[in-house]
């Protein structure tokens, strides 16, 4: 038996208890989702027949399409907003010494500590004052702003790994600071920006409390709120639809993870610590 094969067996054996625990809720989700309506309440592991049509019925019954679209819209736009604000700020933090720099960093650190739950009343008044209530864009704005602290901190430590010499060389060759930034620096920063963007995207994709407060009409609901509304205080809960919706909502992010897993590990390592 080769050494690698031995390692493989040991590694999977050691991981197996954890994997069972991790996979368990997904199994519950999936199995409930494919149970026929009459069998949902029976705690059997296998349904008597696989009701694939739950996935089709779920779509209109849970208003899934619009909620999916809203989630994508909010997650993408808030990420873009956060990046537009934080890339220059992170660049400045990393490349320039200026008075107030330390203060700004501390402000960002502290602002990470506020839970949306703690701020929700104040935030709500802010959104009303801006006239953005029940507008998906209000959520974009709040998520984007909340993400700024994390993205700036992460980006600036990542930027520290990009050598200065290259920009300085460009200046010597007569490029303007702006040109050096766009042509030399940004291409090198793209991996960092990608990783940061993924984090911001996931946080927006999963956020609950703010969306719950700011969005009031079903047309503007994002996925977590939509799914929550199916179980919260209803007189009857259609668990097979809820689970089918949850399962489908999980797939896009799971795919992104599988695809970008390598970059995430590296990006988080550099971004989180420096």
């Amino acid at each position: 038996m080769s050494a690698k094969l031995k390692r493989t067996i040991v590694a999977w054996a050691l991981l197996s208890p954890l994997i069972v625990l991790i996979v368990f809720p997904f199994a519950v989700m999936f199995i409930t989702a494919i149970k026929p309506a009459q069998e949902v309440l029976r705690p059997t592991w296998w349904p008597s027949e696989v009701a694939w049509r739950n996935f089709i019925d779920m779509w209109p019954a849970t208003n899934f399409g619009p909620a999916l679209w809203n989630s994508i819209y909010v997650a993408v736009l808030s990420t873009v907003l956060a990046l537009i604000a934080s890339v220059p700020a992170a660049y400045a933090l990393n490349r320039y010494r200026f008075s107030g720099r330390g203060l700004f960093r501390q402000f960002l650190l502290v602002s990470q500590m506020l839970s949306p739950m703690v701020l929700v009343i104040g935030l709500f008044r802010l959104v009303v004052w801006l006239g953005l209530l029940d507008n998906v864009n209000s959520v974009v704005f709040v998520y984007g702003a909340f993400a700024v602290a994390f993205t700036v901190l992460m980006l600036q430590s990542y930027f520290a790994t990009i050598p200065r010499d290259l920009e300085e060389a460009a200046w010597v060759e007569g490029a303007s600071a702006w040109k050096a930034l766009v042509i030399v620096f940004l291409p090198l920063a793209i991996p960092a920006i990608t990783v940061t963007a993924i984090f911001s995207f996931i946080n927006a994709w999963n956020e609950f409390v703010i969306a719950l407060t700011m969005l009031r009409r079903q047309e503007s609901y994002t996925l977590p709120i939509q799914i929550f509304s199916l179980v919260a205080g209803r007189y009857t809960v259609e668990w097979h639809h809820v689970m089918a919706a949850t399962f489908v909502a999980t797939i896009p992010v799971a795919i992104v993870f599988a695809w970008l897993q390598r970059y995430l590990v590296r990006g988080l390592a550099i971004g989180a610590v420096k």
Binding site: W12, P25, N206, P224, T250, A254
Partner: peptide
């Protein structure tokens, strides 16, 4: 460590992250 199926194992371990906490709690 370097072992067969490491990428798969990493993805599985990261999987709970892909689900909104609200949904996990409901499940």
């Amino acid at each position: 460590e370097d072992f067969y199926g490491r990428s798969l194992a990493r993805v599985i371990v990261m999987l709970p992250w892909a689900v909104s906490l609200t949904m996990t709690a409901i499940v």
